[in-house]
């Protein structure tokens, strides 16, 4: 976690834009939350899911952050996606759902609750990213 799934129409977002969005999402998430970069997952899905808009961000995060942080995060992510892809504002929307951190194991460690991250966890995240 986090896991950001971008539902997009088939052949609508080329690789260079997908890579740019993935990097931007990682920058934004880490900038807003302080999470290690290696924990940010971004996936593009040319699925036939039906959402409110043709392009949709279906994000999943650890529960426990303030409403203000969550709203800012979603706004920044949507803004970055639109800026990189040129998708019209009315064509892209999104949501971020949350689940308990303790339900997930990543890097062999149970995820800590937001605000309860340890040095060991940060160190592992940096090592996993090769940095």
């Amino acid at each position: 976690m986090p896991y950001y799934r971008c539902v997009v129409p088939k052949d609508s977002v080329p690789y260079d834009q997908r890579a740019a969005v993935a990097k931007a999402f990682t920058d934004i998430h880490c900038g807003n939350t302080g999470a290690p970069r290696s924990f940010v997952h971004v996936v593009f899905d040319e699925a036939d899911d039906r959402w409110e808009t043709p392009y949709f961000l279906d994000g999943g995060n650890r529960a426990g952050r303030s409403e203000e942080v969550k709203a800012e995060l979603l706004s920044d992510l949507i803004g970055a996606f639109r800026e990189i892809t040129g998708v019209a504002p009315e064509a892209f929307s999104g949501r971020i759902t949350e689940g308990p951190a303790k339900w997930t194991m990543e890097g062999g460690m149970v995820l800590p609750e937001p605000g309860e991250e340890t040095e060991e966890w940060y160190s592992h995240g940096q090592a996993a990213a090769g940095g």
């Binding site: 997908r18 993935a22 990097k23 290696s38 940010v40 971004v42 996936v43 593009f44 040319e46 990213a129």
Partner: peptide, 18 residues
């Protein structure tokens, strides 16, 4: 499967399974 070029981790192509 996530098609090649559609999955990223840390801003780089991912090799991660979920």
């Amino acid at each position: 499967d996530i098609p090649s070029g559609f999955g990223f981790r840390g801003g780089e192509p991912s090799t991660t399974s979920l």
